[in-house]
Design a binder for these strands. Structure first.
Lengths: 113, 113
DNA sequence: ACCTCATTTCGTCATATGTCGAAACTTAGA
DNA sequence: TCTAAGTTTCGACATATGACGAAATGAGGT
């Protein structure tokens, strides 16, 4: 029960949904996500560690950078089944679409926030 | 997005999950649910109206009593797809099993709380 | 009309949550 | 080793949430 509640709580914040939808397109580092969401780095970091705690995402260190990506391993049953539903239920959300565009631009820039 | 967040928030409380699992066995009136959860009637009423607001459940008045049941109409896509997942992910939760037993007893009693 | 009982609404309270800025930590490079 | 830049941790704050009791509402029965 506890774990199930944690899973639904993790999905109960629009910024965390935005992060998951961004990661559907591929891994991103914290600073890229921060630029798109326009939140403080500490806030984004907290969202990311929460999403990691429920096994939705994984982190990979690469030098100074920490990349996050969707967890597609066997230990990620919850998000594996929920993401398709979210995909269906958020068909053309303006914010999500806008984030998708922003990610492409941010990726090309240097990451000095 | 707003609606999706409301759906996940509705599922982010153990007492509301317990209510949904109890209603899987059939309609219940507020006082029956109140006895099983051992919460104040006002608290249960609040949970129920929240679940109704996201179209998870429907209410039917019958004299003094208000019965709640799972919404199985076409307007209940969210819960229709999520309940099977919850059923799979909460295989043998002690609280849920205990609630199921309590419901059977409470149903036979008079409902004067 | 009045009374009773189930339910809801309201006000209040303690705790949880999302946010930020400052400081600490980590790694790469000079 | 020192500096710079990305990330995380910590402390503080405002708001959201879940709980209660008291009072209001609604529907039957006397």
């Amino acid at each position: 029960m506890r774990d199930l509640i944690k899973v639904f709580k993790a999905l109960s914040d629009p910024n965390r949904i935005r992060i998951l939808k961004m990661l559907e397109a591929g891994p991103l580092c914290v600073c890229e996500i921060t630029e798109v969401l326009e939140l403080a780095p500490s806030t984004v970091s907290k969202h990311l560690s929460l999403l990691r705690d429920v096994n939705f995402i994984l982190d990979k260190k690469d030098g100074k950078w920490v990349y996050y990506e969707l967890n597609k391993t066997d230990g990620a049953q919850f998000i594996a089944e929920l993401l398709p539903l979210i995909r269906k239920w958020l068909p053309e959300d303006e914010v999500i679409l806008s984030d998708r565009q922003k990610v492409k631009i941010v990726e090309r820039n240097s990451c000095t926030v």
